[in-house]
Amino acid sequence: MSDSQDSPAFASPPFDHVKADVILRSSDGVDFRVFKLFLSLASPFFETLFDLPQPSEETSTDVVIRDGLPVVPVSEDGRTLNSLLRFCYPCTLAEDPKLEDFREVVDVLEAVKKYSLDGIERTVCKSLFNPQILEVNSLRCFAIACRSRMQDECVLAAKYTLREPLVPGWFQEIELITSTELLSLLTYHRRCSDALLTLKDDLTWITNEYQHWNAIPWVIARVSGSGHCGCPRSSVERNVFGSEYPTAQWWEDFMDSTFLDLRDKPCAETIKSNVEKAIHTVRQRNCRHCAPVVPAGMRDFGIVLTNKIEELISQVSLSATKHTGVI
């Protein structure tokens, strides 16, 4: 059966070659003129398919022919099929696609598995592990990395999951990982949180960075030189800069809330959010000494704290599983 005049549009180059010997038709009606040889070399599935006796218009009314070529309908849409075929073609004819959307990567990955493109699977998986995708899909990327036995990517995704709550909500790809792998991830999250708690009580990291309280007088509610700035002080005295100092109440509240939140989300975003809340509090108090200097000072302090927690987190390892050794 030949196509009518309302035939689907052809795909863009290189999938519109006049010497192609088969047409793949996407689910959304785009025809890809391709070469059987390239697809057969890349995929055992296509090799077997094209080795089968091909029916003709004379022997079957179900066969669709266009421009003398058999049309093979596939379930993938045009976008997915375009990316898949680019991986199959020689690099001199088609560059590997840039996959920058999580859903697109997953669709291509499913097609890769469907057509037994084993040599391409790891390459497609690696497309998931760029910051834009990891920032919003860390748990899903972790699950896919575990399933594909990609150790480095497991570790990278695990670090991004620290932006998620300790007990995550359900996500579709959770079915790809074992209970052991999930337990390992949750344990890693808890160990990272625990590692940061020492920073709240031992403030030597502040002394090491700022050397003298004059660099950050607002922490102890003082004015550079001498005197109290007027901000309420907490009842807590901190051992900082070699002496015991009562801290500003707003700063003590910042430390309490930040480290409480870090137990659930031990990441830079937690610190940044709490820094901005502290700045808002100081501005509302309108202390003539603190209000002008705290915004810049606290943002700098937040960077110092962030660098310190990232240093500690880098020392926490993702435990290996007994069965796979992947993580």
Rank of each mutant, 00 (worst) to 15 (best):
residue 157 A to Y: 06
residue 197 L to S: 08
residue 208 N to H: 11
residue 225 G to F: 03
residue 180 T to E: 14
residue 154 C to N: 05
residue 178 T to K: 06
residue 172 Q to E: 15
residue 157 A to S: 12
residue 197 L to E: 13
residue 192 C to M: 05
residue 181 E to M: 10
residue 186 L to R: 14
residue 210 Y to C: 01
residue 197 L to Y: 04
residue 236 V to T: 12
residue 203 L to H: 02
residue 243 S to Y: 15
residue 231 C to E: 05
residue 228 H to K: 08
residue 227 G to S: 03
residue 173 E to A: 09
residue 185 L to C: 11
residue 181 E to L: 09
residue 177 I to F: 10
residue 146 C to V: 09
residue 195 A to S: 15
residue 194 D to G: 06
residue 235 S to I: 11
residue 165 P to Y: 09
residue 189 H to F: 04
residue 228 H to G: 02
residue 214 N to L: 01
residue 169 G to I: 10
residue 212 H to G: 00
residue 171 F to A: 08
residue 242 G to Q: 11
residue 156 L to E: 03
residue 216 I to D: 00
residue 150 M to N: 06
residue 162 L to N: 05
residue 211 Q to Y: 04
residue 198 T to Q: 14
residue 169 G to N: 11
residue 162 L to H: 05
residue 179 S to C: 14
residue 179 S to H: 12
residue 238 R to V: 15
residue 166 L to P: 00
residue 234 S to I: 08
residue 232 P to L: 04
residue 215 A to C: 05
residue 230 G to M: 13
residue 199 L to M: 12
residue 224 S to N: 08
residue 242 G to I: 14
residue 211 Q to H: 05
residue 235 S to D: 14
residue 212 H to V: 10
residue 163 R to C: 10
residue 171 F to W: 13
residue 208 N to A: 13
residue 236 V to M: 08
residue 220 I to P: 00
residue 216 I to T: 04
residue 148 S to Y: 07
residue 232 P to K: 09
residue 159 K to T: 11
residue 194 D to H: 06
residue 200 K to C: 03
residue 239 N to L: 14
residue 160 Y to T: 04
residue 185 L to G: 09
residue 243 S to P: 10
residue 213 W to Q: 02
residue 234 S to F: 02
residue 177 I to E: 02
residue 167 V to E: 14
residue 206 I to C: 01
residue 199 L to W: 01
residue 177 I to Q: 05
residue 194 D to F: 05
residue 234 S to G: 09
residue 233 R to Q: 14
residue 234 S to P: 03
residue 152 D to E: 15
residue 212 H to D: 13
residue 209 E to N: 03
residue 193 S to R: 02
residue 243 S to H: 15
residue 192 C to K: 01
residue 184 S to M: 08
residue 178 T to R: 04
residue 223 V to E: 07
residue 155 V to H: 07
residue 195 A to L: 05
residue 232 P to M: 02
residue 203 L to Q: 02
residue 201 D to C: 01
residue 214 N to W: 01
residue 184 S to L: 10
residue 223 V to M: 06
residue 181 E to Q: 15
residue 232 P to R: 07
residue 225 G to L: 03
residue 215 A to P: 00
residue 226 S to C: 05
residue 191 R to A: 13
residue 151 Q to C: 09
residue 238 R to G: 03
residue 175 E to W: 07
residue 187 T to D: 14
residue 169 G to S: 10
residue 154 C to A: 12
residue 195 A to W: 04
residue 169 G to A: 11
residue 148 S to L: 10
residue 165 P to G: 07
residue 154 C to L: 05
residue 239 N to K: 15
residue 170 W to Q: 13
residue 241 F to H: 10
residue 185 L to S: 12
residue 148 S to V: 12
residue 213 W to S: 04
residue 222 R to I: 03
residue 218 W to F: 06
residue 173 E to G: 09
residue 221 A to P: 01
residue 235 S to W: 07
residue 153 E to V: 06
residue 206 I to H: 00
